[in-house]
Structure formats: C-alpha cells, structure tokens
Amino acid sequence: MDKQEIIDKINQVFEKSFEIEKGKLQPQANIFEDLGLDSLDVVDLVVVLQQKFGIKIRDDQRIRNIRTLEDIYKFILILKDEGKNTVN
C-alpha cells in the first residue's frame, strides 16, 4: 500500500464515518478546530482506522500528538512501515 492509497483510505473514513465534505480534507486541517472532532470522536476514529488498516493503535502514545490530517497520514504510514502491530 503506497502513501497515496493510505491518504485516500483515511479520507474515505472521514467522508463516510463522519460525513465531512471532501473539500475540507486538507492535510493541514486541524481535526479538532477545522473538522470538529472531539476526544470521544477520536476514539471512534481510532476504532475505524484499526479496522481499515488492520493495525493496533489504541494504546500507542504517539496518537496524543496528532493534530492535523497530515499527522494521521504520517502516523499510519509509520505504523504500516513498522508492520509489527498487526491485529490478528
């Protein structure tokens, strides 16, 4: 899975699960201030991302530093590269 595929899949999550317009899904968009997610929505987002990418991210401390969509793209890319947290 290349970078663009990951970006497309993440954007699909925001479009389908949160019904956020495609136009708002800019890499620099702040997921809290611009997209309107809150801490509980982030928990929902994590669950969907885990299912979508077959990775375990719930207990990963790095998730606390995520602010923008770009941060999510990078975070998922790193986890896919690490390839060790695969959910069975």
């Binding site: 699960s17 949160f18 019904e19 309107g36 997610l37 509980l40 929505d41 929902d44």
Partner: peptide, 8 residues
C-alpha cells in the same frame, strides 16, 4: 445518526 453527525 452517529454522535458526530448528530452534534453537527
């Protein structure tokens, strides 16, 4: 609706 859609 999910909570995100409902709040919006």
């Amino acid at each position: 609706l999910g909570p995100f859609k409902l709040k919006n």
